[in-house]
Amino acid sequence: MKILAVCGFGVGSSMVLKMTLDKVIKDLGVTGASVENTDIASAKATDADVYFTSAELAPDLKESTSKPVYTIKRYMDKNEVGEKLKEYLAEQEEK
């Protein structure tokens, strides 16, 4: 499973979000998942299984992919990020 953490420039906040996603994946015991951080332009051209980004960037990202896009308000909040990841994983189990 390829996960993209997306911010405007692909440097600061996406790296923080990537680190939080990595911790959540470890805590949940998810195997076979890789997380990359990137900027919005690159994310729109990169295929991933799921995207995590801010509410400001989500509409633009949703226009360029049919894959799920989840918005995160607090990139360092393991609970918020974990809930969104669990939501994604539950949806995948239903398919």
Rank of each mutant, 00 (worst) to 15 (best):
G29S: 14
E87H: 11
L21N: 12
A33S: 01
E94L: 02
E94Y: 02
E83G: 12
D77P: 10
S54V: 06
N79P: 08
V81A: 09
D60L: 15
K73H: 06
K2T: 05
L57M: 03
M1K: 03
N79F: 12
N79I: 12
D47F: 13
E87L: 08
K23E: 07
K78I: 05
E94A: 04
F9T: 05
S14M: 11
E93R: 01
G12Y: 04
D27I: 04
I3M: 08
A41Q: 11
L4W: 11
T38M: 00
E87A: 10
N37T: 00
E80L: 04
F9Y: 05
T31C: 00
S13E: 13
V11F: 06
D77V: 10
S14P: 11
L85F: 07
A48N: 13
G29R: 14
V35F: 09
N37E: 00
T71Y: 02
S14C: 13
I25P: 04
F9G: 03
V50R: 09
D22G: 12
K73G: 06
T46Q: 07
L57P: 02
V81L: 08
G12H: 05
K84P: 08
N79E: 13
D49P: 03
S64L: 12
D39F: 15
Y88Q: 00
V35K: 08
L61A: 08
Q92M: 08
M1I: 00
S13G: 11
S66Y: 05
F9V: 03
K2L: 06
L4G: 10
K23A: 10
K18R: 11
K73A: 05
K78F: 05
I72K: 14
L21D: 11
N37I: 00
G32H: 02
K2R: 10
Y70Q: 07
L61Y: 11
K86M: 07
A90T: 04
E80I: 03
F52W: 15
M19L: 10
M1Q: 02
D39W: 14
E91H: 14
K26S: 03
T38V: 02
L61W: 10
L89N: 01
I40C: 06
V11L: 07
K18S: 08
F9L: 03
P68I: 13
Y75P: 09
K78Q: 07
L61N: 09
K62Y: 10
M76T: 09
Q92P: 02
T31W: 00
K44N: 12
M76H: 10
S54Y: 07
A90R: 08
S42W: 14
S64E: 15
Y70K: 08
V69E: 15
A90N: 06
V24M: 02
V11C: 04
Y51Q: 14
E94W: 01
D49Y: 01
P59A: 11
T20C: 04
S14N: 12
D77G: 10
G8H: 15
A90L: 05
C7E: 13
S42K: 15
D60P: 09
M19H: 09
